[in-house]
Every structure is written in structure tokens, then in C-alpha cells.
Nucleic acid binder design. Structure first.
Length: 415
RNA sequence: CGGGGUGUGGCGCAGUUGAUAGCGCGCUCGGUUUGGGACCGAGAGGUCGAAGGUUUGAGUCCUUUCACCCCGACCA
């Protein structure tokens, strides 16, 4: 991608209507556009990041056997009434709309009911389970207060997965497989060390605890207590002596922290399947309840968390796994430098290396500043002076470390 | 939803006791520059969030309303 052809531009000033660091940086760098409070559009570079996160999530869900689907945003009222989740008194953050004939519809905020409805016709026997179904799509929630940039929006991208098991034992195994996959997702995003499996309230449908995945951050909304040696935590909401005993946690080992909930996993028992009259037939020909689990990852929220966490005074610092490009190629100088830079751009692109090529007639300082603001992992500079020496300058975004390399050494570094 | 704050060119801001809008960045054109966000010159661009009112006259005062931010409450 050539910067001269990129329609977005960077800005030296942060927008006045954003305080959250993630939103300020992402908007300054031209990654996102704020449409209204809690609703952001993804521009070319931001979309690349989002797609890269989706790819990681998708790979890990597929790896445990997840089957991807795409459910609808428009929701019929009846299935939600069967589970008693239509009433605004029960679920108060629904967006609702109407058909021309007056029929009330919901705008999807989660998908337990429609998923159960969709799989019900295929799910008849114990032989059909266990299985996972997931999707990555926009969710809509009428939050009373959107805030913190991408961390709490009204329209946001979420991966939601649902498991179907014939009994509790199978469910437990399926559930733990998801927990492991979640740890791999966060590790690949560079958040593994600061993301804790956290015991939390299981919700109104189950006496069990749920698990949240909390990434430590000062801007987090949740207060959690971390047992650092065991790498687990407990949400303040359920911090009672009784629960600590139940979970085998020792109060003295816990440290209070702030966290952002970047994922959660719930035990749903048979609440939804029973309510929607979906059962299976067991080995003995008897009708049995289906045990469900549901598992969420806030994909757009993760983008905000990464932006927030991996950044410095010069801008964003993307982990290589999700950066919009691997290399920011800076061209300084005249025809000779242009020829060399064009050539390098073509060569790297041909090798499948994503390059943002700054071919503008800007001064070097402006290009370096943009490379840093955009947070591209590696910067390569081509200039008349370097060409004369037969070298390329190579700079690492995380450390600022710079070295001059021969063409072969540079290509080896970038491979 | 309670409390507090803010709306003025694309972005960031100033605008005094009311007199029909200004600065920086960015943008356009010309020239000089080219290793850390260049400089000089010339330009373009705004019904001051919206509606109503007071007044000879409103960005400024009053009323209503919309939007956005922060704190809190809320967050299947």
C-alpha cells in the first residue's frame, strides 16, 4: 500500500471529544472514524488490524472444532419470549425496531436463542454431539453510557460461540477446551501475560461461576483480585469468604487490580434448549436435555485494549501478529532513492510481506513520525546517502533500535 | 438515568461590558528546501450544533432542544 494513495491522513492533534487513549491514537492515525458515541467505523488500516484479530480468533476456534456460521441481526420476538428475555425489564439494552406492518423485531445483542433455533432441526441424537458453533459479527447493545473508545460501544464486533453437549461431563471437557483456546488467542495478541482467567458471577441461570478473561489495565472497568502465582483471579463482584473457600483461593495471596473483560465463558446448563423445546434421544431411546455453554470474545474491544496497552508517546505499537503491515518503507531523496525504494517495495510485496510504502514528497521527519504513530513493527529507510553505502536502515518500533544492513541482511531480517 | 462539562472552517482553539468572526495545523498555487513533523509569498474555506425569543444590532443575553465528553448508577 502506497501512502500517496491512502485516503486517510494522520493528525498531530487528538480529537477533543475523545479522552480514551485507544480512541485518540486510532483516530489520529486514521484507523477508525467515530460515527457517534460508541459507534466506530473501521478505515483501511484499522480494518486490517480488525481482520487480523478475527483471523487469529477464527484459527483458534477452528482448531478446537468450531464451525463458523453467520446468524441474523434482525430477531423475531417469539423465540426470545420463550426464554423470557424479550421484556425490557429482563434485558434492558435491546435495540428494537418494527416491520412496516408493525411487527416488533429485536436487533441482535447475543444469539443463544437463534442458535438453538437454527441447530434444533439437526440435533436429534446423542450421536450428534458435542459440537461448537460460532460467529464473528456486529452486536448491538443499547448501553446507557458508551465510553472509553473501542472498549465499550453500542455496536461492536464480537465472536460468540455456543457448545452443545449431551451431558455435564462432556460439557465440562468442551468448556475447558474453549478456555485453553482463549488463552492461545490472548497469547498470540501479546496479552497472554496480563490476561487472567477470572471467576465471576455465572448469571441468573446457573449457580455455577462463569469465567471472565480479564486483561490488566488501569482503564479497566472491573476490579479483580489476582493470585499471581496461580495465574487466576476472582472478580470483586463475587468476592466473599464463602466463594473464596469454594474456589480454594487464599485472601492473602490476592492482589487488587483493574481489568478489561476481553472474553467470557458461561455454563448455560439446559436453560435455553429446554425453554425452546429442543431435546435429544439418548442411547436408551429416552429424551434428554441438552447442555450448552456460551463463549464470547470482544474482537473490537481487543483492538482497543491492544492499542491502549501497546503504545508510547509516539503512538501505537502493534504486535506483529495483528499489525496492519509488517514494514513501513520510508523513501528519502531523489530519483535514485525512488528507484531503489520502488524496487524494494515490489520485492517485499512479491514475497508476501505487507508493506506500507511512504512514497510521498514529505520531509523525513514527517514520515518517521507517521511510521511511529501508525505503530508499524519495522521501519526500513531508503535514501541517497544509504544507497551510496549500499545499505538500508532498519528500525524496530518497540525498541527504537536502528541498524544499517545490506540488502541480504535486511531481507533475512524481514523473512 | 442522576451530577458536572463542552459545541465557533477538515482538526485543535481564541473571541472582552452585545456592533455581522480570528489564530495555529491542514488544504490550494508559486518559489526555496529535503535524515526527525521546513521556510517565504499568495489564496480558498465558517448561516458560530439546531429552533425560537429579547434587542436598532446576538458567537456573546433568555428559553427549548440535539449531540459529545467525564464521574456515578447500569452492563443477559
Amino acid at each position: 500500500m502506497r501512502v500517496s494513495q491512502l485516503f486517510t491522513k494522520t493528525s498531530k492533534t487528538a480529537p477533543a471529544d475523545e479522552v480514551a487513549k485507544n480512541a485518540q491514537l486510532l483516530i489520529r492515525a486514521g484507523f477508525i472514524h467515530k460515527e457517534m458515541a460508541g459507534v466506530y467505523a473501521y478505515l483501511p488500516l484499522g480494518l486490517r488490524v480488525l481482520e487480523n484479530i478475527k483471523k487469529i480468533v477464527r484459527e483458534e476456534m477452528n482448531a478446537i472444532g468450531g464451525q463458523e456460521v453467520a446468524m441474523t441481526t434482525l430477531q423475531p420476538r417469539d423465540i426470545w419470549e420463550k426464554t423470557d428475555r424479550w421484556d425490557d425489564k429482563k434485558v434492558d439494552n435491546w435495540f428494537k425496531t418494527r416491520l412496516a406492518n408493525g411487527t416488533e423485531l429485536g436487533v441482535g445483542l447475543t444469539h443463544e436463542e437463534p442458535i438453538v433455533d437454527a441447530v434444533s432441526g439437526y440435533l436429534n441424537s446423542y450421536k450428534d454431539m458435542p459440537f461448537y458453533v460460532y460467529q464473528i459479527q456486529n452486536k448491538f447493545r443499547n448501553e446507557l453510557r458508551a465510553k472509553s473508545g473501542l472498549l465499550r460501544g453500542r455496536e461492536f464486533l464480537m465472536k460468540d460461540m455456543y457448545s452443545f453437549s449431551p451431558n455435564q461431563e462432556v460439557h465440562e471437557a468442551a468448556y475447558e477446551k474453549v478456555v485453553e483456546a482463549y488463552h492461545r488467542v490472548y497469547a498470540r495478541l501479546g496479552l497472554g501475560e496480563i490476561t487472567y482467567r477470572t471467576y465471576a458471577d455465572g448469571g441468573i441461570f446457573t449457580p455455577r461461576f462463569s469465567d471472565e478473561f480479564q486483561t490488566l489495565s488501569e482503564v479497566g472497568e472491573d476490579t479483580i483480585y489476582v493470585d499471581e502465582s496461580r495465574k487466576i483471579a476472582i472478580n470483586e463482584e463475587i468476592l466473599t469468604d464463602e466463594n473464596l473457600a469454594k474456589l480454594g483461593l487464599n485472601k492473602d495471596d490476592l492482589v487488587q487490580k483493574k481489568g478489561v473483560e476481553v472474553g467470557n465463558t458461561f455454563h448455560l446448563e439446559s436453560k435455553y434448549t429446554d425453554a425452546l423445546d429442543v431435546y435429544y434421544t439418548d442411547e436408551n431411546g429416552q429424551q434428554q436435555s441438552i447442555i450448552m455453554g456460551c463463549y464470547g470474545i470482544g474482537v473490537s474491544r481487543l483492538m482497543g485494549v491492544v492499542a491502549e496497552h501497546f503504545s508510547d508517546e509516539n503512538g501505537l505499537v502493534w504486535p506483529e501478529s495483528i499489525a496492519p503491515a509488517k514494514v513501513y518503507l520510508v523513501r528519502i531523496g531523489s530519483e535514485d532513492a525512488t528507484r531503489h525504494a520502488d524496487e524494494l517495495y515490489e520485492e517485499l510485496t512479491a514475497k508476501g510481506i505487507e508493506v506500507i510504502y511512504d512514497d510521498r514528497n514529505e520531509r523525513p521527519g514527517a514520515k518517521f513520525a507517521d511510521a511511529e504513530l501508525m505503530g508499524i513493527p519495522y521501519r526500513v529507510t531508503v535514501s541517497d546517502r544509504l544507497i551510496e553505502a549500499g545499505e538500508y536502515e532498519y528500525t524496530v518500533r518497540t525498541t527504537g533500535e536502528t541498524q544499517n544492513l545490506t540488502r541480504d541482511d535486511l531481507l533475512a531480517k524481514l523473512n
